[in-house]
Design a protein around this nucleic acid. Structure first.
Lengths: 225, 225
DNA sequence: ACCTGAACACCGTTCAAGT
DNA sequence: ACCTGAACACCGTTCAAGT
């Protein structure tokens, strides 16, 4: 319980970091303003000097979650040996770039308990940065799609990712407390652990990328608007 | 304010229907047990005779939302002129069936304010029926996929649908109160109304179906598990 | 610049008791 | 079978005031 929160007088960064710790240790339902204040040895009302309300606090957390741990390394993103997001990398490997971005986003969301829900709700309210969407859009755009199409594709993929990881994390949470409605259900059982989820995720991402590839090679009408 | 809630002594169905009305009129945040009780001219504690807790009430609402208005018509689903879900309809039209199911689900979710969020959260907790997933799975299975693959595909599509409609409905809500973070943003502006959302949805569904089609014709490895 | 103390207007849920 | 009344243990947010 001792740590950053010792010497009184906190900064906005302290608050966000402590909130992130509570989120990861106890989950989103336990992340209340009063509990956060207590962890900082402060009255709840003190938090409103740093953040105008709880939503904007959550938006800040969402940004940090999406940014991921590689924030520290610098402006260039961590990627494979030859880098993953080179815009001039021909047309052959854009599918790998999209898959890699989707996977990186999943990892970032999984790094914090209830990460997907925090990001999804923040995004739905139009708060928080658009980094996640921008990264996916950039990867899709490598396929040579026009910008609105790339953005549409990225948005759809983003919805899949958030939905999938949300579901995955909710199950993790309620799995551990044993509140699952039907633990004997073969499709939802605890035996169906992280590996199966990872495979399902890869499958969904592959189907999606395949659909984009198909659209790109002009085998299908791009849109009937 | 007068209506069903007049003669005291309510049934479980009364409670669910009144809850659905509050949901649609005022949104999920305003659907509290106390407010629902007040609408029924009853103490909040009375609700716990009909439902063990709020989550199970929401699960019931989710089931009704997914079932949609065609519940009344009978066991066969409303569809196009020649019916959409005939399992022996050859192999040519399964893509239309999937698209139709996805669209029908979107319509059902859109029929109630915050419908997508109610269904998504219920689903995440493993509560509620699996009707939505089962319908999508059946449609995908028409493509000749094995059951686990059809289920995986349907799950991914379901995530996209829930994410898309959630986002769409959140925007509707906050749009009308004018709480949008950046109303001038061209990608999020109010001008971008229902039609654009419908087009984005169709685009996402098409990409997804295209990916499945591609996978079916064996142009791509089905899975690397 | 950062926080306290006290209040306002709420929540979901439990439980003995009533009819 | 269905509901009341009262309580328990909470919420997010505001605001005058303190240092």
């Amino acid at each position: 319980m001792a740590g950053i929160e010792s010497g009184r007088r906190h900064t906005r960064d302290d608050v966000a970091r402590t909130a992130l710790r509570i989120l990861d240790d106890h989950g989103l339902p336990d992340l209340t303003m009063r509990r956060l204040a207590a962890a900082l040895d402060v009255q709840a009302s003190a938090l409103y000097w740093h953040f105008p309300n709880k939503q904007s606090l959550l938006a800040e957390l969402a940004d940090r979650i999406v940014a991921g741990p590689e924030r520290v390394t610098g402006p260039e993103r961590v990627a494979g040996p030859e880098g993953v997001a080179d815009p001039v990398a021909g047309s052959g490997e854009w599918t790998d770039a999209v898959r890699a971005e989707a996977l990186a986003l999943r990892d970032a969301l999984l790094a914090y308990r209830d990460g997907a829900e925090v990001v999804a709700s923040t995004l739905a309210l139009g708060l928080g940065s658009r980094t996640a969407l921008d990264r996916l859009t950039a990867a899709v755009a490598l396929g040579g799609f026009d910008e609105p199409t790339a953005r549409r594709g990225a948005t759809a993929l983003l919805h899949f990712v958030l939905g999938h990881v949300s579901h995955e994390q909710q199950r993790l949470q309620y799995d551990s407390i044993g509140v699952l409605a039907d633990p004997a259900d073969p499709a939802d059982a605890g035996a169906r652990a992280g590996d199966a989820s990872a495979a399902d995720f890869a499958f969904g991402a592959d189907v999606f990328v395949g659909g984009l590839e198909r659209l790109r090679s002009g085998e299908v009408s791009p849109l009937r608007t």
